Computed example of a mutant assay.
Amino acid sequence: MRENNNNFNFEKKNVVLLILAPILGIILFGCVYSKVYVEEIPIAIYDMDNSNISRSMIDNIQDSTGINVARIVDSQDEMEELLLNGEVSGGIIFPDDFGKNVVQKNSPNVLALVDGSNIVIGNNVVGYLSSVFNTVNAGIQINIMEGGGIIPYSAQKNITTLSFVDRILYNPQMGYFKNMFAVLLSILIQQLYLSAMATMLIEYKHKIREVLDTPKHIRTIIRNEIIPQILEGMASIVISFLVCLLVAHRFFGYQLKGSIRVTILVLLIFLVSLTAMALLFATFFENITSCVQVILLLSVPGVLSSGYIWPEFAMSPHFINIVKGTWPLYYFDNALRDLLLKGDSLMVIQHYITGGIKFGVFWFIVGAISYYIRIVSIKSDKQYALK
């Protein structure tokens, strides 16, 4: 009776962890990344010209909601020090005679320094500055043409002979939370479920070691105890997954476009594949701490190599095939993004589903056989040692 009570507590703790941890993780990531735009980025300006034109351009830069002119400096050294200290994320230097050269149409250069150590901030600074300078440049050219006697309508037509219109689909605001939600949820599920299942399977391997009985007894433990706990873990993840989708939608503006049935199907295929991986980990690891440490180390390489953040066509030749054959995250995080963000149908993501099923079936068979052989071998070794 005491042993059964310990098993119940172990299962209960895992259920609570598998349900609550992903939800808390999504709330945390949502609070950090849900803001659509990175705005009010601090920059410094060094105006060596101090002309009406340079001051007017500084006013235009300050009017941009994305940039905050935090400092007006007196030297380039002062600007570089601010960049090195992280007090500003960019800097603009207007050279001597800038205004004069603009009037004379000499195409003067404005130097923009951008801190590229953070690509999110760096890319936004470049984007905001490009938008401001392109707008100001067009306005200056129109004013010059009008000053030369060209009527305003003709001057504007000369500037806008070619116009470029972009339409960003699925994530038009380029929000970081929308972009990263699927992979963040995928890695939370992977790490938590894989750790819990591998830990449970190692515990049962040690338990069966003490049961010096027939293979029939071992199969009974697998059927009546291990399999129900695996199913319970899967059910917990499904519940947590659905709550995470609801939280992302209601509180952080994430649009859910795909079929919920297809989404759950993709999740279940992923969980079967992770169970196969847990069987393999439990086969080769005796120490739970070492096993969990290795599993935790898989999060970063798993995300970086899954084709979600860095496209697979840009990877080394045939490398993605190795990833597809050895780890299941590729089939889940990419499919989840296409389902939730793009609203793709079952036919469009069929290659992810087919690949995930093949992966799960193959590695589950390998894992189950390996785990069972390991249990039998441990039992045989124990019996031999007692003799």
Rank of each mutant, 00 (worst) to 15 (best):
M57K: 10
D344S: 02
Q76Y: 13
S236K: 04
F313P: 00
I187W: 05
V16D: 08
S154M: 14
D344H: 02
A44I: 04
M234T: 05
L162E: 03
F252A: 01
V102L: 03
A70C: 02
L246E: 03
V348G: 00
Q190V: 00
P328I: 11
V376T: 06
V126P: 00
L194P: 04
L82R: 07
F332I: 03
N68E: 09
N179Y: 15
G99H: 05
L296F: 08
F10E: 15
Q156F: 09
Y170Q: 01
S56H: 11
V126Q: 08
R250Q: 12
H249Y: 03
L83A: 11
Y128K: 00
E40G: 09
F362N: 07
D74N: 15
N321Y: 12
C291E: 10
A155L: 03
K35H: 13
K382N: 13
T214R: 02
R209E: 11
V136M: 05
W327N: 13
Y330C: 03
V243N: 01
F29T: 14
E11M: 13
I230Y: 06
S56R: 11
I67L: 09
T65M: 04
K157H: 05
P108E: 11
K105Q: 15
N106V: 01
Y308I: 10
I218L: 12
G30M: 12
V366R: 06
A335H: 02
I202G: 00
V300N: 10
V348W: 01
R71A: 11
F252Y: 08
S131F: 01
L129P: 00
D166Q: 11
Q191C: 09
P172M: 04
V114G: 05
Y331S: 02
M57Q: 12
P152K: 10
L83W: 07
L265N: 08
D338T: 05
I349C: 00
V348D: 08
V88E: 04
V38E: 14
S131L: 01
I43Q: 06
I189W: 03
H318S: 14
L267W: 07
V132L: 01
V120R: 14
V294C: 14
E146V: 09
I23K: 14
Q104H: 10
V266S: 14
Q255C: 00
E39G: 10
S377W: 10
A335E: 01
D49L: 04
D59W: 06
Y153S: 15
N5D: 13
R2E: 14
R2W: 11
S107N: 13
S64K: 03
F10K: 15
F98S: 08
L279N: 12
M200G: 00
F251E: 00
N50Y: 08
